[in-house]
Amino acid sequence: MNPFAFARADSVASALTAVHRTPHAQFIAGGTNILDLMKDDVEHPPILIDINALPLRAIEQRGDQLFIGALARMSDIAAHPLVQSAFPVISIALEESASPQLRNMASIGGNVLQRTRCPYFRDTATPCNKRNPGSGCGAIGGFNRMQAVLGTSDRCIATHASDVAVAFTALDAVVHIAHGSGTRTVPLTEFYREPGTTPQVENALAPGELIVGLAIPELAYGAHSTYVKARDRAQYEFALASAAVALDVQGGTIRAARIALGGVATVPWRARQAEALLAGAPATRASYERAAEAALHGARGQGQNDFKIPLAKRVVVRALEMVSA
């Protein structure tokens, strides 16, 4: 790694002050993503500000919302009784992510901000519009088996790597952000930015802002939720295709559904058309297959990743069958 300076913050205010002091300064929490990228020279901040002492680890009910502090670790959230009972989809998505060691390290704020695993983004010898705007995209026409089929542009087809962000997206989670003059909130579905002509812009976070937590609004049928992840290995691998679903079934009829896809899109992908098709439909495989078709509407393969389109449909159907069983 290149040399850099290091500072510790003990409050949100002091962290924001410190990050404003030096251009390109970055926060470090778990470190599992930023240090990896610094070793590869993809990131080279002049200073890292350690925010681990900030009081942002709570996992608690706040009114009708479940609030998860930005520094709560993946393993703590996955094991938390409130999460397991109200939103099993969150626990499952976390347990299906990374390794036990990494889940003990990685913060949830860092998880939702994690960078793509696209090999061209991580290899500074190759072009990448996300890492080096205007340099081109190595993945388009290159090795693209792991790349996205939804939300892509002619500048970038990199897949968003987080599993739990897919669950959060299905659950209408809201990001709580601190900045120099207060706090603001952004729904996660509006937080992420598809690449378009500016793949280097990945989310709504402005320089110097800090995620302090995520809030998940009450969902009466949240207990009927799950996460299905298809991947090359049984554990410790990124998704080829995944689905976070929640389903409200009464007397054989679907009253409401939530569906989001992972592993196939440039951002955690909410499938609202599929949800609308399911509302009022019978809870049958035929309904789930129609919803899966709608969820992948507009998907475009790049050759090596064409298989993700039928795979993602099957993952959606399986997830819906699991929660309605």
């Binding site: 470190g31 240090l35 390794s99 060691q101 990494l102 003990n104 390290m105």
Partner: peptide, 12 residues
């Protein structure tokens, strides 16, 4: 708690 010591800084 078990962690990967390669992805964290000693100073932390």
């Amino acid at each position: 708690r078990r962690i990967d010591s390669c992805l964290t800084l000693a100073m932390m």
